[in-house]
Amino acid sequence: MTIKITQAQVTELFFEEEIEVDGVTLTTVEEGDFEQDGKMQSAELIFTDGTKFYRGTVMRSGSPFTDWYYDEDTDFGVDEVVKKEVTITRWVAV
Rank of each mutant, 00 (worst) to 15 (best):
M1N: 12
M1Q: 14
I3M: 04
I5M: 15
T6G: 07
T6S: 15
A8D: 07
A8H: 10
Q9L: 12
Q9F: 02
E12F: 00
E12C: 09
F14K: 05
F14C: 05
E16D: 13
E17C: 04
E17A: 13
I19M: 01
V21S: 00
V21I: 13
D22M: 01
G23P: 04
L26S: 03
L26W: 00
V29D: 07
V29W: 00
E31C: 13
G32L: 05
E35F: 09
Q36F: 04
D37C: 08
G38I: 07
G38K: 10
K39L: 13
K39D: 15
K39V: 15
K39F: 14
E44K: 11
L45P: 00
I46T: 15
I46P: 01
T48W: 03
T51P: 03
K52A: 14
R55A: 10
R55M: 11
T57G: 03
T57R: 14
M59F: 09
S61V: 10
S61D: 14
S61G: 15
F65G: 09
F65H: 11
T66K: 08
D67C: 01
Y69F: 08
Y70T: 14
Y70F: 15
D71F: 06
D71W: 01
D73R: 12
D73N: 11
D75R: 09
D75Y: 13
D75L: 06
F76D: 06
F76E: 10
V78C: 01
V78M: 02
V78F: 03
V81D: 02
V82E: 14
K83S: 12
K83C: 07
K84I: 05
K84P: 01
E85S: 11
V86G: 03
V86I: 07
V86Q: 04
R90Y: 06
W91L: 15
V92F: 02
V94W: 01
V94Y: 04
